[in-house]
């Protein structure tokens, strides 16, 4: 049981400098100080917040090792509050991952390596990154959490798996470039993400923290719009614009229990049925003659 059911979260809707890790780390320190002053207990930075997004060949030189000295500085950010930040991780076998790291009380608690690497349209991630191979939840001081990085949420199974692990919140750091201009007041991408995040929160009866970056890289704009959504699908806090901002929200973690009492969707989920059916689909696919 969670003793104190209130949680103050902060989303750092920031504009990282492209390929300048030292400058970005300093900016992380500033945001952490500002958030701590505001009483934030869980602070989320966007995807690749330490490096910027469209790195191309800068991926290798922007990377850090989980065993390296930079990790000491990152751990240090979380002395007073929990911190989720984005970095390029180089493994000992020299594979590079687009990763999101969860730190608490000066320790690394969890690493999520982005599984779905968009490589279409304006995206080229598989050229530079290796893909992660798992979706795992982890325990925090505020209940069970899972991380999905940007494109991960465009695959239903990712959030579904975390949900069946029993997460209270899904954290989604993002670097989503804006596109799709119509007569609407918002970009097509902003509309789509709003729809997806709210759908997940409501269908999976979980808090959903979406932290998107802002700024421009090589002409592409990042639209911000960071939002905190409750387990009933309601938006608790949202930054409407694409300015740098610390988005604050106070969550009542008891909302998850109350929502699941009212809407026991998770209780009624048929995991074994799902697995059996997926296994059948896989079997039939592999049996095709050509």
């Amino acid at each position: 049981m969670i003793k104190d059911s209130r949680l103050a979260v902060g989303l750092v809707q920031m504009d990282p400098a492209l390929g300048d890790r030292a400058r970005n780390l300093e900016r992380h320190r500033q945001w952490v100080r500002q958030a701590a002053t505001a009483g934030v207990e869980l602070l989320v930075f966007p995807e690749l917040s330490l490096t910027g997004y469209f790195l191309k060949d800068l991926v290798a030189e922007s990377a850090i090792s989980l065993q390296g000295t930079v990790m000491d500085e990152l751990r240090g950010l979380s002395d007073g509050l929990d911190v989720v930040l984005g970095a390029v991780i180089e493994e000992p076998d020299h594979r590079y991952f687009n990763a999101s790291l969860y730190f608490s009380r000066g320790e690394l608690v969890h690493v999520h390596r982005k599984v779905y690497l968009p490589t279409y349209g304006m995206f080229d991630e598989q050229r530079y990154f290796a893909g992660g191979d798992r979706f795992r939840s982890f325990k925090t001081g505020f209940g069970r959490a899972g991380i999905l990085v940007c494109e991960d949420i465009w695959h239903l199974s990712s959030a579904y798996i975390l949900s069946l692990e029993g997460v209270d919140m899904i954290i989604c750091p993002s670097a989503s470039p804006g596109r799709g201009v119509t007569t609407d007041e918002r970009l097509g991408t902003a509309e789509s993400y709003g729809l997806v995040c709210r759908t997940y929160a409501q269908f999976l009866t979980t808090f959903f923290l979406y932290c998107n970056r802002v700024g421009y890289e090589d002409g592409a704009n990042f639209w911000g719009g960071s939002m905190v959504i409750g387990p009933n699908g309601d938006i608790i806090a949202q930054q409407e614009d694409a300015d740098e901002a610390l988005v604050l929200a106070n969550l009542d973690l008891g909302d998850v229990r109350r929502e699941r009492l009212a809407n026991p969707l998770l209780r009624d989920e048929r995991l074994e049925l799902t697995i059996n059916e997926l296994r059948r689909v896989l079997h039939e696919r592999t049996r095709k003659p050509f």
Binding site: A17, G19, K56, D57, Y216, E217, D218
Partner: peptide, 9 residues
């Protein structure tokens, strides 16, 4: 040899 033009900015 592919680098962003906003390299370091």
């Amino acid at each position: 040899f592919r680098y962003p033009r906003d390299w370091g900015h």
